[in-house]
Design a protein around this nucleic acid. Structure first.
Lengths: 230, 230
DNA sequence: ATCCTACTGCCATAAATTGACAGTAGGACA
DNA sequence: TGTCCTACTGTCAATTTATGGCAGTAGGAT
């Protein structure tokens, strides 16, 4: 048996256990040495499997590695597909792929009739307006927001010279034709909004933002009286 | 990338396609030679994946492969939430609720860390343009499309009197400020587009459309040379 | 203290993966 | 009919990866 099929089998085997299993038991079931079993576990963990092991205990696969079956109503499917299509039409390529992949994964765990509903959904999105986005690397921005990392940008203000600022990005707002990065600005020591088409450069610093993203977002909402109820 | 992770990725890639894909396209996406791609396909088939391939066509993955998809990635969650927020901001109330419910159902199957990611996602959607939608009952339109039911509308054409038409709606297109219903018009015996803000009345007839929605959509796409790749 | 277990490093051997090239074949289309 | 796009197979040499064994560390339960 090749290693790749063995890894798939190992996941399935782990899924059948509710209580911890020892590595040697798994190794015996898979017909490999204990050393190889440890390597297989490590590989699966590297791929995102939440396998917990403790000395003297054994292994358990925490749920959340594979998608469980789901039920959605027809209208919920319509909403998801429509939203994903807007993302595909309007966001960057990486997010577009992510939307496609998300729908495909959801479709795979829906019952057949709903999957058909999803595939033949006919709510379409067309955009006629041009986006003015600048040359910014949006995946990098989203990454920085997710990871809570400071970034440096050169920003051309409306009335003034371009300035270099270190900011703490926490939200990205999608408007019809532009996108605006909401951040805490170290230069101004306050919240500031940056239109992405006015960036000239952007550098990830790798420095952690000392505040939690959701806290910054909540504070910013209070400060600007902005609400978005989803 | 190791072969085992590549095989998993390949399944997921195949899941995102509904139409046949050529082996060379897949090979390019996966970053391997065509020869290796053929070997990977063969390996997956040997493990039970129902991948159908035909010379001159490409490959399709039939649903129902034993292995459920991997859990959603952070980026996929971002894409779904962003899309749902656009729906919530831009669609009718029923669809907005549906989007919210869909996210809740998805959140319910996510592991804790990803659920947190979903809840604190900070890609926002703001719309400044006004919608010109008329007084149409959008849930009823969507229902008619889903069920494949004819409807009667009074439509004020640009250059002429309002006319009453019986139409076969099969798609609803979301533009920035308007929505357009694509339908087969019994009056003109051809495809026609109806801006929803030019309807004065709309009546569900309860009469079945004698053609399948996806067929109408495909024919309309051919006739108008429209593509939407999701 | 001791037992069961997870986990790591190292190493020599064995096995697999890979890309390249050449070639066969099936279906669509002109 | 011929041409094009594609699936698919065989072979081979170079490279990469997998494997088992062994020695050793460490954590937790009794």
């Amino acid at each position: 048996m090749s290693r790749s099929t063995r890894l798939l089998d190992l996941i399935q085997l782990l899924r059948t256990y509710r209580r911890p299993v020892s590595g040697s038991a798994l190794a015996q079931r898979m017909g490999v040495s204990i050393r190889t079993l440890y390597r297989d576990i490590a590989t699966l963990q590297a791929q995102g499997a939440d396998i917990q092991g403790a000395p003297g205990f054994g292994y358990v696969l925490k749920p959340g590695f594979l998608m469980p079956p789901m039920m959605l109503s027809e209208e919920e499917i319509e909403a998801l597909v429509l939203g994903a299509r807007w993302v595909a039409a309007r966001a960057d390529d990486e997010l577009k792929d992510a939307a496609r992949n998300a729908l495909a994964k959801i479709a795979a765990v829906l019952p057949a009739d709903l999957r058909h509903e999803m595939e033949t959904n006919s709510l379409l999105v067309y955009n006629t307006r041009n986006l003015r986005l600048g040359t910014v690397d949006f995946p990098a921005i989203r990454e920085a927001i997710r990871q809570g990392m400071k970034i440096d940008i050169d920003y051309a203000d409306v009335n003034g010279q371009p300035t270099t600022r270190r900011i703490w990005p926490f939200a990205l707002a999608y408007f019809e034709e532009t996108r605006v990065l909401a951040a805490w600005c170290e230069l101004r020591n306050d919240f500031r909004h940056f239109r992405t088409d006015r960036f000239t450069t952007m550098t990830l610093t790798g420095i952690r933002i000392p505040r939690r993203r959701d806290r910054l977002l909540a504070e910013w909402r209070r400060a600007h009286n902005v609400t978005q109820d989803m």
